[in-house]
Design a binder for these strands. Structure first.
Lengths: 208, 208
DNA sequence: GTCTATATAACGATAGAC
DNA sequence: GTCTATCGTTATATAGAC
């Protein structure tokens, strides 16, 4: 059996290990309540090592958000730009991805985290808003505009309608996180029903 | 100038004064962070007086929720049972009341409060779920069933669809509370757009 | 003077500092 | 890891209404 050396220089792996540990800790205990020492221990490094890669606690959380959530948003945007078919089909595709992301065990706790801690850490709220929330909202608004331009959706306010589409998704995940998995929130029932509801709400006059 | 006596016996007025002070404090600082002493001071009583009227801190919050939010839910239920006209018109009426309640300065902070603190105080989460959230959800589901039975709405899952209707309302208020009043959340634009979206999403085939 | 609403003061658990 | 301060909670004293 080989013994692990006391110190290992692994410049490449450290940040992601620290972020993984941070995500877990922040999700479970909240931002304010988790001590960087716990994160360090979980990541198998010393507290000082964290400061080597991140300026401070808030910067660590921002990096996690940027690493975990932002790429998912980028993925959605990429789908929109690459897609060639009808906008209802595009919406179906995007919705499937978005609902999977939002309900996932990594992202779901983040929603609660932001709601809970935003008041005490305004810069994190601001970061989340500009980098993720606002971006996602306008991505869906863009999709709606595409549908309107192609005559597939009726005229409406794209940003407001984007909220009608996304917010149930977010709230469903958030409620599951807050109240536990209640039968009312059953995603297998909820998501198809909501998607159908959305497509009908958007349909151009005379179409189904 | 007359000085207020050190003690005043006002058995009737105390509970509501304490609850008002509690609502303000809990909304501003959160449940865990507010000290009962601050509530007492704001209400003009001593800490022990609170215990005369409420079993403990959690019980005080429950009483506030029961006093502030539950009556509003009852009001919505009453409207449904009293209403005689078409279900779309009923939905318009209910939605107007519900959106006013949810966006109000008393209720909006409560949403954030529940999301933030439910994890650490499971009995409060449970109380809120059964007494308020679940109740509201099924009230809207009932309304949708009424529309389906009368042939005004298409067939759908009432509880799931109720989420599609209510959750944007809640999330819009919650987001306003978390990120501040952003132009995207402008309620004057959002609510009419969402209501129109909902009515089209529910419309029976062949109707607008 | 009696009854009880209310304040003062003490207790004990728990979290945060060092 | 220990010590201390804080805060929810409870016990006791007292003031006000009748």
């Amino acid at each position: 059996m080989t013994f692990a050396p006391k110190r290992q220089r692994r410049k490449e792996a450290r940040p992601s290990e620290i972020m993984a540990a941070g995500l877990k800790a922040f999700s479970e205990r909240g931002f304010a309540a988790t001590r960087l020492e716990d994160v360090a221990e979980a990541a198998g490094v010393s507290k000082a090592t964290i400061y080597l890669y991140f300026d401070n606690k808030a910067d660590l959380l921002k990096a996690i958000l940027h690493e975990v959530v932002s790429p998912r948003m980028g993925e959605l945007e990429a789908i929109i730009h690459a897609f060639d078919g009808s906008t209802p089909d595009l919406l179906r595709a995007i919705y499937g991805r978005a609902s999977a992301v939002v309900s996932s065990d990594e992202v779901r706790p983040i929603l609660k985290l932001i709601v809970s801690e935003a008041g005490n850490f305004p810069d994190i709220a601001k970061f989340y808003w500009t980098e993720i929330a606002s971006r996602g909202l306008h991505t869906f608004a863009q999709l709606i505009e595409r549908g309107i331009e192609r005559g597939e959706f009726r005229r409406c306010d794209p940003v407001a309608t984007a909220q009608s589409i996304i917010f149930p998704l977010l709230m469903n995940a958030l409620a599951t996180e807050v109240f536990g998995p209640m039968p009312e929130f059953n995603t297998d029932k909820f998501h198809p029903n909501h998607l159908e509801f959305v497509l009908r709400g958007l349909a151009a006059n005379g179409e189904t």
